Amino acid sequence: MDKVSVRELRNNGGRVLQRVADGETLTVTMDGRPIAELRPVAGRGLTAAALLQRWRRLPIVDAARLRADLARVMDSAL
């Protein structure tokens, strides 16, 4: 987790908040000590219709190819 000072937050507030909006969690420090945490607000859940639309766009998984790929990269000694 990256840190930003109170001074940086004051002087570059827009940039700092854009980093948070982009998904970063930041620790705000004062005199080198952590005093606060900035993190994105949890997003609202998707509707069932939106989830179904995403699900329909997922690629079809070929189980035989997946097993072959896993067998190729896995260490059978484990």
Rank of each mutant, 00 (worst) to 15 (best):
V20K: 06
D69C: 03
P34D: 12
R44H: 15
L51V: 12
D75C: 03
R7E: 10
A50L: 13
W55N: 15
D31A: 12
L70K: 01
A63K: 13
A36P: 01
T29P: 00
V4P: 03
G32D: 04
Q53R: 15
L70D: 06
R65W: 05
V20F: 08
R19I: 01
R44T: 13
V61R: 14
V16G: 00
A48P: 11
D22R: 11
S76L: 13
G43T: 14
G13K: 01
A71V: 06
A49S: 12
V4F: 01
V20S: 05
R57W: 09
E8N: 04
P40I: 03
D69S: 10
R33F: 06
N11C: 03
L58T: 09
N11P: 00
V6P: 01
R67L: 14
I35D: 04
P34S: 10
A36Y: 06
V16H: 00
D31V: 02
R54E: 12
S5V: 04
A77W: 09
R19K: 11
A42S: 12
R65G: 03
V6I: 14
V61W: 05
G45P: 13
L66H: 06
T27R: 12
A77Q: 12
A42T: 11
A42Y: 02
R10M: 10
I35Y: 04
G14E: 15
L58Q: 14
A48Q: 13
M30H: 10
A48T: 08
Q53I: 09
S76N: 10
R10C: 07
T29D: 03
R19S: 06
R56F: 02
D69M: 11
R7H: 05
R72Q: 14
N11V: 06
D69P: 00
D31T: 07
A68Q: 13
R65N: 10
R19Q: 09
S5D: 06
V41A: 11
R19T: 01
Q53S: 15
R57T: 15
V61P: 02
R65K: 15
E24L: 05
R10L: 12
A71D: 15
R56V: 08
D69H: 07
D75E: 09
V41W: 01
M1Y: 09
V73T: 07
A64S: 11
D75Q: 10
A49L: 12
R57Q: 15
R33M: 02
R54F: 10
A36T: 02
T25C: 06
R65P: 03
L52G: 07
A42W: 05
D69K: 07
L46Q: 14
R57V: 11
L52C: 06
A49Q: 13
G43R: 14
A50S: 15
V41T: 12
R15P: 00
T47P: 02
A64Q: 14
V20A: 08
R33Y: 07
L78Q: 10
R39K: 15
E8H: 01
P40M: 00
G32E: 04
V20T: 07
A36N: 08
V20H: 05
M1V: 11
